[in-house]
C-alpha cells in the first residue's frame, strides 16, 4: 500500500471516530429514553440546546469544562420538559418532542442575536482543543456503562419493563412515570453532551444549523442498533463513517457536487432503516403514554 493511501485511511478512520462521537451520545440518549417507553424525537433540539449553552458558558467563564457541563445540564433540562410533558401531562410524545426541536432551534438563533448581536453564528470561545479526544473515549465508556445499567441493575430491568408494559411495573409496586422521567432526563443529558461536543469539542463556535439533523440520524441509529447501547453505538459509527467519507471524498473527487456528497450519511441512514422495516421490533410500549 502506498504511503499516501495509508495516510488517507488513517485520516478516514480518525475522522470517523470524531464524526461518530456526537451521534453516539445522542443515540445512547435515544436508547435509554425509548427503552423506558418514551420516543425522544427531541434529540435534535436537545443537541442544539447543549451545543449553544456550552458555547455560552465557555465564553462567559473561559472554561470549556464548565461549558461542557452546562451543555449537559441544558440537554437534561430539555429532557425534563419532554419527560414531564410525556408523563405528567400525557402529551403525545412526538408532538412534545417536535416542540422541543422547534423551540431549541428558534431559541438558539434568537439568543445569538440577543446575546452576541450577531445572527448566524457565535464568536469564538475557548474550546477543548486536543482534549476533545477525552470526550471521544467517554462516549464509548458511556455505551459500556449504559449496557451495564440496562442489563445488570435493578433500575435497568425496571426501565426495560417500563418500555414493554408499564402496567406490570406499576403492579410490581414501582412508579413507571418516575422511571420514564428519569430516563428521559438522562437521555437529554447525553444528547446535550453530544451537542456540546459539536460546538466546543470539534470547533469553537455555535452556528445555526450546526447539528444538521444529527439528532434524527441518532434516532435512526437507535433503530438500526435495535435499541441496544452497543448496537446504537455501532450504528452511530456506521453513519459517522459516511460523514467522514464525504469529507475525504470532497478533497479527491471533483466531478460530483459537494452537496451530493454531503448527503451521504443521510442516504446511508435512509437505506439502513428501509432495509430493516419489518425485521426489528421496538419496545412494546414505546411512544404510548402511561
Amino acid at each position: 500500500m502506498s504511503s499516501a493511501g495509508g495516510a488517507l485511511i488513517v485520516t478516514l478512520l480518525t475522522l470517523t471516530l470524531i464524526k461518530s462521537t456526537p451521534i453516539i451520545y445522542a443515540a445512547l440518549g435515544g436508547v435509554i429514553s425509548e427503552r423506558s417507553g418514551v420516543v425522544n424525537i427531541g434529540l435534535e433540539g436537545m443537541m442544539i440546546g447543549g451545543a449553544f449553552t456550552a458555547v455560552l458558558f465557555s465564553g462567559m467563564t473561559g472554561s470549556p469544562v464548565i461549558g461542557i457541563i452546562a451543555g449537559i445540564a441544558a440537554g437534561a433540562l430539555l429532557g425534563f420538559i419532554l419527560g414531564f410533558a410525556a408523563t405528567v401531562f400525557k402529551v403525545d410524545q412526538i408532538v412534545a418532542g417536535t416542540g422541543i426541536n422547534l423551540v431549541a432551534a428558534g431559541g438558539a438563533a434568537y439568543a445569538l442575536t440577543l446575546i452576541y448581536n450577531q445572527p448566524g453564528a457565535s464568536p469564538q470561545v475557548s474550546a477543548l482543543g486536543n482534549n476533545f479526544w477525552i470526550l471521544v473515549a467517554i462516549a464509548f465508556a458511556c455505551a459500556a456503562l449504559l449496557h451495564g445499567v440496562l442489563y445488570f441493575t435493578p433500575w435497568g430491568l425496571r426501565v426495560r419493563a417500563c418500555g414493554e408494559n408499564p402496567r406490570a411495573v406499576h403492579d410490581a409496586g414501582l412508579h413507571p412515570l418516575r422511571l420514564r422521567l428519569y430516563a428521559v432526563i438522562l437521555s437529554g443529558a447525553l444528547a446535550g453532551l453530544g451537542g456540546a461536543f459539536l460546538s466546543i469539542g470539534e470547533v469553537n463556535i455555535y452556528s445555526d444549523g450546526m447539528t444538521a439533523g444529527r439528532g434524527f440520524i441518532a434516532l435512526a441509529a437507535v433503530i438500526f442498533g435495535r435499541w441496544t447501547p452497543w448496537g446504537a453505538t455501532g450504528a452511530a459509527i456506521f453513519f459517522g463513517f459516511f460523514e467522514a467519507l464525504q469529507y475525504v471524498l470532497q478533497g479527491h473527487i471533483s466531478w460530483l457536487p459537494a452537496d451530493a456528497m454531503q448527503a451521504l450519511p443521510y442516504v446511508a441512514a435512509l437505506f439502513a432503516i428501509a432495509g430493516l422495516v419489518g425485521k426489528v421490533r421496538a419496545p412494546a410500549a414505546d411512544g404510548i403514554p402511561y
Partner: peptide
C-alpha cells in the same frame, strides 16, 4: 400484566 420480552424469573422478581 407481564413483560413479554423479559424472562420468567425477571417478571416474577420485578421490583
Amino acid at each position: 400484566q407481564l413483560v413479554g420480552r423479559l424472562s420468567v424469573w425477571q417478571n416474577v422478581m420485578l421490583g
